[in-house]
Structures are given as structure tokens and as C-alpha cells.
């Protein structure tokens, strides 16, 4: 796997956890939320990630009636998921500023 896809995969996982922390969502809702925040990932790409997060027990899915009628699988954060999200936050803070600075063309070394 290339560095690029691996990097994006990890970031996508973190973002999905962050959306679920704010609000319990089902698949379609989640993809709209991600797009709303400006993450232009293809909608389908969330499902392999959701499966992986469930396998790692970071999120849990539950079938529930949706406001619009049909049964939907809603995702919740588990305690382990909450921890993983805190880790992600921490790591993100840790790389964000230095990387931004390095990429900035105006700054001299």
C-alpha cells in the first residue's frame, strides 16, 4: 500500500470516529457529514472502514428504526473507540503544526 493511501486511511478512520462521537449516525448520513466538512472521499469508501472499526471494537452498530421509516444500522462509539479517538486527536495535534510550518513557503529555515 502506498504511503498516500495509508495516510488517508488513518485520517479517514479518525474523522469517522470524530463524527460518530458528535452524533450517532448511519452510513448515508455519515458520508454526507464527511462531505459537509469538506472531505471529498468517495461515499462508498466509508463501508470498509466501518467494518474494520467494528472488528477492532471501536464502534458498534445497532439496527434501529430511522425517523424516515426503514430500519437503519446506527453506529455508536465504544469506550475503546473513545480512547482511540483521543489518541488520534493527540497525534494529529502533534503533526499538524510542524507539518503546516514545513509546508509554508514563506517561512525560512
Amino acid at each position: 500500500m502506498s504511503l498516500r493511501t495509508q495516510l488517508l486511511k488513518g485520517i479517514l478512520e479518525g474523522c469517522i470516529l470524530a463524527v460518530i462521537e458528535k452524533q450517532v449516525v448511519y452510513g448515508y448520513e455519515l458520508s454526507l457529514k464527511l462531505q459537509h466538512f469538506g472531505l471529498e472521499v468517495s461515499e462508498g469508501s466509508i463501508y470498509p472502514v466501518l467494518l474494520r472499526l467494528q472488528k477492532e471494537n471501536l464502534i458498534k452498530g445497532k439496527m434501529k428504526k430511522s425517523p424516515s421509516g426503514p430500519n437503519r444500522k446506527y453506529y455508536y462509539l465504544t469506550d475503546e473507540g473513545q480512547e482511540a479517538l483521543e489518541d488520534f486527536r493527540h497525534n494529529w495535534e502533534w503533526v499538524k503544526q510542524p507539518v503546516d510550518q514545513l509546508l509554508d513557503r514563506r517561512d525560512n529555515l
Binding site: 448511519y26 452510513g27 448515508y28 458520508s31 468517495s42 461515499e43 462508498g44 463501508y47 467494518l51 452498530g61 426503514p70 437503519r72 444500522k73
Partner: peptide, 29 residues
């Protein structure tokens, strides 16, 4: 069971996307 659950989710997604005017290629590539 997990297989059928994810297939259901994918189908539900397509149905909602269809109402918003999106095709299967738009959703799953």
C-alpha cells in the same frame, strides 16, 4: 449475518443516493 448486514447498508445507501440523483458509480466507484 455480517455479510447480509453490510449488503443491506450498501443497498440502503444506493437507494438514498438515487433519490439525490447519484448513480452506483458515483457511490462505489
Amino acid at each position: 449475518h455480517e455479510t447480509e448486514e453490510i449488503l443491506t447498508e450498501m443497498l440502503d445507501h444506493l437507494l438514498e443516493a438515487q433519490e439525490d440523483g447519484k448513480t452506483a458509480v458515483d457511490v462505489f466507484g
